[in-house]
Design a protein around this nucleic acid. Structure first.
Lengths: 328, 328
DNA sequence: CTGAAAGCGCTTACAG
DNA sequence: CTGAAAGCGCTTACAG
């Protein structure tokens, strides 16, 4: 106990929380003792006594896909800077009972919550969070506000998809096909909506979207399907991994990219610039998104500033080799 | 308080910890009350009172690269199955003071620790963990035991590198160049060592390894360098992302793969099978590694079973399109 | 089988 | 400016 080294007892507490009313000389004495003994205040005792657990736990369906992983990275960065601990809980299925159990576990940690609600599991988790817990959602769509004290962040996926689709149309393609990532709701996802917006604006035909998952294998299957249709000259994919799989399937089917078919992705994952052909995609600032999410949560928990309006990062179209004019 | 609903008080505690001496009828009454009130025991109070914090925090230099992310995923899976909370702390630099600070923060969480010691930051973190804390290391090399009660896990990277190098040599290449990931120590990394082993066994020339980082950009730079040397016909890369960058650089330099140069990677990341050319690589069971790491930690903390010997997963060579015979 | 007491390491008012 | 007291929600021996 640092009190032994110094003289007082919970004066140590005052020093640690740099309370104003402490005589400078005793403060120094205490600080010296803390330094010497390598004293660290117990985070769990603090949490129990004060009721606030300087921590955030992130609830997510996935930790390895680029978008999820990069957002998590941004949250961790910001949390570390504010000396918050960060925990993670994976939502392995979207099953209601399982989601509820994971939410409980996360709530048990006692701190704030950030929910990645890009998918059904995440959306359900967000809905299952008890009223009184501080939580911010990282969501796909700004459709229905989650509630009074429930801020959220998102990237403008719809506008991003519109920009990518316009790009492909501007190259001369008659229409653009779409391989979709799973939507977070029963309704159409934002990327799908933006793609459709652009098609309508241009008066282009609206092909049925091909449902995909998040990984290259799923893109590959979608690509095999699309490769059979000779009218397909442009494909937008819900993320870069899907695009990678689509490209592989087209290649195996003997379709040249971008000579015969153009392909574009989403996210600008680190490897996308180094593929052959390099991938046209839309860059999204996931780490910024994660940092923003933490910022809002911090405000909520510390009640320092009023909850800021949800920040929206601006997606950027990156044109590379995988998109070009259609064959004549 | 559930006691209100039932009749007792810390009998609730006994019921929760299913202590044997509780009359069946009262147990049922308590259980019913718990169910009805949705009572959950406070994890932080439990941690404070019992001294054991059913949690593990993972210290790692990175959360997004495939090997790290997949190992983390394995840890989380296993931890969730044992209802342990999992926290993460990122070692942003290998700077001694910064590493020490992160170790402190992780220790503050009060639970067990798993350190990903694939790099300098991780190795330093492992060394800086206070004696008394339960910790298991996920290490590159089984060289020097970390201590009595400090189990660790690893994959046999050396053997894996040897296998990949032998594969390339067996195709007829005179020698194999190597683009290295950073080593965890000042000494030669295990993958580098295995590559060298195979070269020596075959009596092949030993080119200087090219130092790389973990990402495709770094592989690209290494590839540009190697592309200038016309004698290079086979390149082993420290991971798949590096290989991806190398392939791009070779492609830009007009070198055919595998016609003129063969390339192989490490890890078998999810996209590697879908690249063009698809990537010859060594598959490593990272999620299994993560699960094993948690298993050891659990044994350490719960003192249930004696610390099991470190499990070693067996790497598997996956031959794909990027490797072939040298040009004649 | 089941209470009552003490303590985990802090914080938060309350006295001096 | 700085103690002494009570309490955060549990667990761990100790009594009955």
């Amino acid at each position: 106990m640092a009190s032994a080294a110094g003289v007082s007892y919970q004066t140590v507490s005052r020093v640690i929380n740099n309370h104003p009313s402490v005589k400078p000389s005793t403060r120094e004495r205490v600080l010296a003792a803390i330094e010497e003994l390598g004293f660290r205040r117990s985070a769990t005792a603090l949490a129990l006594a004060s009721g606030r657990a300087r921590s955030v736990t992130v609830l997510t369906a996935n930790t390895t896909h680029y978008g999820y992983a990069a957002t998590l990275q941004g949250i961790e960065e910001a949390a570390r800077a504010s000396s918050y601990a960060v925990g993670i809980g994976v939502l392995e299925t979207a099953d209601e009972a399982a989601v509820r159990a994971e939410v409980q576990r996360a709530a048990d940690a006692g701190g704030g919550l950030i929910v990645m609600a890009y998918d059904t599991a995440g959306v359900r988790a967000l809905a299952a969070i008890p009223e009184e817990l501080p939580v911010v959602g990282v969501v796909e769509t700004p459709a229905s506000p989650p509630g009074e004290h429930r801020p959220w962040v998102w990237t403008d996926d719809r506008e991003a998809a519109r920009a990518a689709t316009r790009h492909l149309l501007s190259l001369g393609h008659e229409t653009v096909h779409y391989v979709a990532i799973p939507s977070s709701t029963r309704r159409t996802g934002q990327r799908t909506a933006g793609w459709r917006d652009a098609l309508r604006e241009a008066g282009a035909a609206e092909p049925r979207p091909v449902a995909g998952s998040w990984d290259p294998a799923s893109g590959y299957r979608a690509g095999q399907k699309l490769a059979r249709d000779p009218s397909v000259t442009a494909i937008l994919c819900g993320n870069d991994d899907l695009a990678l799989g689509v490209i592989r399937a087209l290649h195996e089917a003997g379709r040249a990219i971008p000579g015969e078919v153009s392909v574009a992705g989403f996210d600008d994952a680190p490897h996308s610039a180094y593929l052959t052909p390099s991938l046209t995609t839309v860059r999204l600032d996931f780490t910024g998104l994660g940092r923003a999410a933490f910022g809002l949560l911090y405000g909520l928990v510390e009640q320092a500033e009023p909850v800021a309006p949800h920040p929206v990062s601006v997606p950027e179209l990156i044109v590379r080799e995988s998109s070009g004019p259609p064959p004549r």
